[in-house]
Design a protein around this nucleic acid. Structure first.
Lengths: 200, 200, 200, 200
DNA sequence: CATGAATGAGTGTTCATTCAT
DNA sequence: TATGAATGAACACTCATTCAT
């Protein structure tokens, strides 16, 4: 009877090893060997679960989405709609080391997906997930009467997405500090969202 | 008498070869050899003009800035302020093939500068140039009374920059078409800029 | 189960390949590729056993010391002190093909360690081993009353070392034949060592 | 009419440039380019006088002999025989920076001549010059009755040569300081030379 | 005579990948 | 399943040398 191995579990272990390597040596430092050593495996063993370096990185990308989504749910629970929106968006800004690492990985994949269609497919879920979140936000807010009058929810979703991703890029580049990112985000939310505590 | 060679011209040729390689294989695909082949030179010949790979990439980054700035100047001349603003910003959105190419180069360098401080320094001029443009726009508009009331020019410059770069990323990823980008840009400008023809 | 390989054995194989390359092309001719070809391996395979060129050379230097020491022990066993001294010193003179080869290796490393501190460290054991031998000889002879009167054992050790290394150099250069080297060595030993069979 | 150039003068200029490079970057740092830059010439210009790198180094070797001989003559003039002998021999020991550089070059050529017969020929003059000096010393001293009784002038010349070259090697290796070298040299001279002030 | 542009093989090293065990 | 030995091409960079001008 062959040994039973949980492939999915193994892949997650590997993805986490990839992350640790990225944290330590930067994204350029990711090599099959380095990941194997980090995970405490032999180089050959990786091939059973992740055939190529590309898949290795892709698994790290999948982990990215899982982590961000999980953290969003954890941190927006129980919040009022407006605060939940702000909290959710903050989860994709590089406001601390954890999110900076995620952002660097997000960015690396964004770049790669420009020249590698296969990465692009894998990566689509990340982009679409974020766009969907923005759509939900503007649509729900519109339904709740909290979107500023005259704004098109679809256009606003795209604009919000652009603002957030643009801020993330600038933050990752070290050209914008945490306070700066939050100031812009808050200015933007203030503008597109009605003041909810509107009178009686 | 030795053959006379215009070093600056050669460097430009090389920078263009670097661009072609980046477009084809991504920035990761840029190797000294690949650039030499692309330019039709021998590998050793590169050293006369660009000593290291770093310089090679830096020259490609400089070319980017030169081109965008030149085109902005060409296309905004003679326009009214508000139209000039829109025209200038459009020059960094991937609205046609030429700008898509530039955007891909911009993106590659943005990504790379995240993990390579040296690239980061060389690349700074690109980021700073764009940020400065945004600062000029919001400050001038504020001085002309065309910035919407209650907005902080500095924050708005950062927000505008974020919107534009975010749009560029989404456009480059093929997740947003030209019309979409323009719709968001126009929505944004409409919101932050006063209608100037609003007298008594 | 992976192929089992004796790393130490491999390193010795490699060290011997390094020797052959040094003998053929000089130490300057030692390249990772040349050694790989000489050993009949692929370039990449070397990295399993000897990570860098430095380690490659170091292993060749270690082999030198091992061989000379082993031969000295083998050939001085059972000899009377004075004959043992002569026999030991003869082991570092290029008196036959085997010792000429070793001498060439010794010389190459001596030269190289002049300009490369790292090599120098690795090579120290060779120099120190020989100096220690000379120290032992003069000290023991002094204790046995066989050192010529008025001589300082420490200075004599250094002088003996100089004579032997000088002879080795001249022999390696082909400027001195075996008989010449032995004549000088014997003259030197005759001078510094008392005639032991000198009683009443 | 072609420009008249003193080739010999040029070669000397180059040899001195080679020396400066050796002093600055070590012997490994000698490259055709480095020498050309140091001499203030173009790389191509070297070819007119010194076709290959080998010739470049050979010219530096010739300079070596000239310098040592000139210094010996300068520093032994007017000295009593015994002091002149000591002074002459000191000129080939690495007792100061100038002589250390000479020694390093001497050693490099000694090494090279082991594997490159052509260098060997060029280098012969250096070895033979030194051996001849030693022969002169022991023969003259013997004729003057200052050689210790029972010593064979020819063997003693070879021994003296070996001691001096051995000391030079050890000094160059940094394993023997100036005082140590002089102590050994003096011990050796004391032993082979009669005390001259020993009348009746 | 002299230039310096140009060549292309060479350096040590790293790497993703393959495969016999 | 799992190992790690082995491959060989690729990397940036250096170099002695050639040659058109």
């Amino acid at each position: 009877m062959p040994k039973v191995v949980d492939h999915e579990e193994r892949r997650r272990e590997l993805a986490e090893a990839v992350w640790r390597v990225i944290l330590r040596d930067g994204l350029e430092g990711v090599s099959v060997r380095a990941v194997a050593v980090e995970a405490g495996w032999s180089t050959g063993a990786l091939r059973h679960y992740l055939g190529t370096k590309e898949e290795l990185l892709a698994s790290a990308a999948r982990l990215l989405e899982e982590r961000v989504v999980a953290r969003m749910q954890r941190r927006t629970g129980g919040l009022a709609p407006r605060e939940a929106v702000r909290a959710a968006l903050c989860e994709v800004l590089p406001l601390d080391e954890e999110r900076r690492v995620e952002g660097a990985i997000w960015f690396a994949f964004t770049d790669r997906s420009l020249v590698e269609p296969r990465i692009s497919e894998e990566y689509q879920v990340v982009f679409s997930g974020m766009r969907e979140l923005c759509n939900l936000i503007t649509r729900d807010m519109a339904e709740m009467g909290q979107l500023a009058p005259g704004l098109d929810p679809a256009v606003e979703a795209a604009r919000l997405h652009a603002v957030v991703d643009g801020l993330a890029v600038h933050g990752l580049l070290g050209r914008m500090d945490e306070a700066g990112m939050l100031a812009v985000l808050d200015a933007h939310l203030a503008e597109i969202l009605q003041n909810s505590e509107a009178p009686g």
